[in-house]
């Protein structure tokens, strides 16, 4: 456990000292200062726009951090030959991979907490300018931010897995971006083909679409932004199932990452 914590801490520090990460974080922080001004662009929905802008900024930052850090994680350590010095210590490859993931996950959680803490006053200030008929549901907003964090932790697990099998940065980077977009749209596709359009498809095509749907991570399940923006009842049961889905899917990806990295020959 001490070895795991030691590696996790090193990975976390490595991300905190990454200039690209710091630049993205500073831009996101500055954007929150502008949220009250940008919210005024909407004539009647200042509060709703402020919530949307805050949640979208958090999403964008977490997307960039999860893809960039996940995709470059194992690949960069192999490329820079850090692995030969790190695995020369009494560290198993499984510990190495899981600590790598944990370092990214901790970073995503910290970013979420920091940006979430800034989003709440930004929304309050914006909403105070032109009070809306819809009361602000703070728990919905916090719930939506939390589910977003889980979504991007899952995406970082996808990127990390691709990084363990790749010898270049491009495959895990573009692969995880492609999986993110496909996984965000898969729910809509499956609902679309369950309607009238699906009747025109061959059974084989439907089967392929269904297989892809179940293989891809379903990122849309984590999207609770609408409930947060319009103060709709928070789907607790759905959120619980999504959380369980997150645990199972991430665990499977980590097992695959460890298996793949254990078989890899290192320079």
């Amino acid at each position: 456990m001490a070895t795991f914590v030691n590696l996790l801490s090193a990975n976390f520090r490595s991300i905190l000292r990454d200039r690209i990460f710091l630049a993205i974080l500073i831009v996101a922080l500055l954007f929150f200062l502008l949220v009250p001004s940008f919210s005024l662009f909407s004539m009647r929905q200042v509060q709703e726009l402020a919530v949307t802008l805050c949640l979208s900024t958090i999403s964008l930052l977490l997307l960039l951090v999860s893809v960039l850090q996940g995709a470059s994680s194992v690949w960069r350590d192999v490329e820079k030959r850090y692995t030969s010095s790190l695995l020369g210590l009494p560290v198993s490859r499984a510990t190495f991979v899981v600590a790598k993931f944990a370092g990214i996950a901790v970073t995503l959680v910290c970013c979420t907490m920091l940006l979430g803490a800034l989003a709440l006053p930004a929304i309050s200030i914006s909403a105070a300018q032109y009070p809306s008929d819809i009361p602000i549901h703070w728990m919905n907003i916090i719930g939506a931010i939390g589910m977003d964090c889980l979504k991007y932790i899952l995406l970082s697990a996808v990127a990390l897995f691709l990084s363990t099998v790749s010898t270049s940065f491009f495959f895990p980077f573009f692969g995880s971006v492609a999986i993110f977009f496909a996984g965000s749209a898969s729910q809509e596709v499956i609902e679309y083909i369950s309607g009238d359009y699906g009747k025109s498809l061959t059974p084989a095509a439907k089967l392929v679409i269904n297989i892809v749907y179940y293989l891809l991570p379903n990122f849309s399940a984590f999207n609770l932004k609408v409930a947060a923006i319009y103060g709709l009842p928070f789907p607790f049961k759905g959120a619980l199932y999504t959380f369980l889905y997150f645990i199972v899917y991430t665990s499977i990806l980590l097992c695959l990452s460890v298996w793949s990295f254990t078989r890899r020959e290192l320079p």
């Binding site: 090193a10 520090r13 490595s14 010095s85 020369g88 210590l89």
Partner: peptide
């Protein structure tokens, strides 16, 4: 590798750390 010290050929270490930080990291690993 618990009782072993390994120096790789053309070694490369976590270069965002200082030497003191890296040695502390190695010490904790052992």
């Amino acid at each position: 590798r618990q009782r072993l010290g390994y120096l790789p050929e053309n070694p490369s270490f976590l270069d965002f750390m200082t030497a003191r930080e890296y040695l502390a990291f190695v010490g904790r690993a052992f």
